[in-house]
Design a protein around this nucleic acid. Structure first.
Lengths: 150, 150
DNA sequence: AACAATATAGTAATGATTATTATATAGTAA
DNA sequence: TTACTATATAATAATCATTACTATATTGTT
């Protein structure tokens, strides 16, 4: 989506589309690395030298509350962010820390469980966050070059 | 499990069974509320007035690393703990914050997905944490009396 | 009973996140 | 445009869960 498209979309959902917010959203949408606030800050800073980390946090929270993005609380007491707000599963490498999206085929299985839960739960389910932890192929071979930055 | 049983179990896995650790483990095993470190601290403190919150954190990390318990990173930037280390799903109420275990029948479905993933993932999966977010029955009716403490 | 290793508790430090506030910017209406 | 109102930004400070440090105490062992 273009900057103009992002701008219009944000306005449509009631979020004032400032250049910073558009850049933050664009950055998050343009990666599958599930970056931290800090990583987004570093990435966007090249275009906005005066950018504040605070602004990044504020934008991410605003986007989250509007359902535009997804916050992923990690066990290391740090949050990562996902530009895809639709429920979908993740693979997390417990050695190098990378977070990857699962293939759609697996997500379809998870969707089936949503339906199953409708009858088995005393409540209304509106979201899902499924994580699968293990060792990525590169870490299995001790050849992992994953850089946590970004 | 009795205190003696816990003590022996801890020794078996190489963890020195101090009274504090036994009490912390016993407390966590004795609840399904997925308490925070603070809540465990408050609960155990009645038996150990001089208990340090630090000791609780240390014990929880030790137990986690030994695979005896499970750490649940919540979106509110706080960690909860689960005395059941086996992979199993949770329901999280996004209004009152309660965390409940899913019925075993649902977990069986999730186990099927583990198998499915073996072929679809470039890595080795060793654990799973599936959360389903929504409104618990009581919060749907605005009658929720859930107390976050404990 | 003494020793070596480790746990506890108290305190201080860390670090991600959030609050505060003056200034700047966006949206709107004249 | 211009003026106006509301909201966003950025800088700074504060918060709060968690972790580090360290002297003392306890455990398990010789």
């Amino acid at each position: 989506m273009s900057k103009t498209g992002i701008s219009n979309m944000l306005r449509d959902v009631g979020i004032r589309p400032t250049p910073q917010r558009v850049a933050i959203y664009e950055t998050l949408k343009g990666t599958t690395r599930h970056p931290t606030a800090e990583a987004i800050y570093e990435a966007v800073k090249s275009d906005f030298p005066s950018l504040s980390l605070n602004t990044v946090y504020d934008a991410l929270q605003t986007f989250s509350e509007a359902g535009l993005i997804r916050k992923l609380a990690m066990k290391e007491n740090i949050s990562r962010y996902d530009g895809n707000p639709a429920p979908h599963g993740h693979f997390v490498c417990i050695r190098c820390g990378r977070v990857e999206d699962l293939r759609p085929a697996v997500d379809e299985e998870l969707e089936r469980i949503d339906l199953l839960l409708k009858d088995k739960i005393n409540g209304r389910i509106v979201d899902r966050d499924c994580r699968f932890y293990g060792y990525c192929a590169e870490c299995e071979g001790e050849m992992c070059t994953y850089e946590k930055k970004n």
